[in-house]
Amino acid sequence: MSLNKQISDWQGRRVWLVGASTGIGLACAQALRAAGAQVVVSARKPQGVLAWAAQDAGVQWRPLDVCDGPQVQETAQALLAEGPLDMVVYAAGCYQAQRATAMDLADMLQHDKVNYQGALQVIHAVLPSMLARHSGHISVLSSVAGWRGLPNGLAYGPTKAALTHLAETLYIDLQDQGIGVSVVNPGFVATPLTAQNQFTMPALISPEEAAREMLKGWAQGQFDIHFPKRFTLWLKLLRLLPYRLYFPLVRRFTGL
């Protein structure tokens, strides 16, 4: 059963991807463009986007710091003045491994500003237009790291859990307004963020594979788009375990 309107034809659709200068966000932007969408890419730094945008009229680059509320509003209004946004994908992310034995409050608050508050800023800027049109789709890039508490996830995991909760509540509130909502929960993807991990990442996939899974999820009208299934389905089972079993199991398999 589809929870959202199925989107498989991207021709003429306009998509704003926030936090898409590298990794999953950029791969998704490129996949959407290849499928025929008009894409707008925003991030703090252009990295590999400028050369791409310069040679393709269907790609726009708009610099954006998601922590700057007025700039988010200004950028969104400028984009909406050029036409409606059919989808907004929030892919901005901050990740540093952290444990409570070396708690860094400033780092934790920065994770919150980028991963969660930034999403609120962007959604707040685009939602009135979607509500007025009774059309559009909001997709937020969360993580399986937000499903349950994990070692080294003190700063990152709670923000992703908040994003998933936000998406669930948005869906409940907006499903009868003609607005789609989805949450993307990747496992390990080879990106600049995960490159800092000092352990073997199981079922590691490329950003391009992640992008294909996202488009597949939207085509099927999914709310919870998670991948790769060979990894995420096991994690979904772990979510069902009582704490008295879950905590010892995590210690055993992580050694932490």
Score class of each variant (00 low, 15 high):
138 I>L: 15
232 T>E: 07
229 K>I: 11
140 V>Q: 00
211 A>D: 01
77 Q>N: 14
150 L>P: 10
75 T>N: 06
228 P>Q: 07
204 L>H: 02
80 L>W: 02
41 V>N: 10
242 P>R: 05
48 G>N: 14
220 Q>C: 07
99 R>P: 08
242 P>K: 00
88 V>M: 04
111 H>K: 09
44 R>S: 09
135 S>A: 15
18 V>P: 00
199 F>V: 13
256 L>A: 13
170 L>N: 09
222 Q>G: 10
117 Q>V: 15
42 S>I: 05
127 L>F: 01
169 T>R: 14
131 L>Y: 01
252 R>F: 14
193 L>G: 05
192 P>E: 10
105 L>D: 06
247 F>Y: 14
149 G>V: 14
146 G>C: 00
170 L>V: 10
82 E>G: 15
163 L>H: 07
79 L>W: 05
68 D>M: 01
154 L>E: 12
14 R>M: 10
114 V>Y: 04
37 A>H: 11
86 D>K: 08
185 N>Y: 08
37 A>K: 10
168 E>N: 10
13 R>E: 01
219 A>F: 05
223 F>K: 03
81 A>F: 00
164 T>I: 05
242 P>C: 04
217 G>I: 01
110 Q>W: 11
248 P>E: 06
21 S>Y: 01
169 T>D: 07
44 R>D: 04
253 F>D: 03
8 S>D: 11
229 K>C: 04
231 F>R: 08
89 V>P: 07
128 P>R: 07
205 I>A: 09
212 R>A: 13
85 L>W: 02
123 I>Y: 00
189 V>C: 10
241 L>D: 09
127 L>Y: 02
248 P>H: 03
71 Q>P: 05
118 G>S: 00
124 H>M: 03
219 A>P: 01
240 L>A: 13
179 I>L: 01
196 Q>H: 13
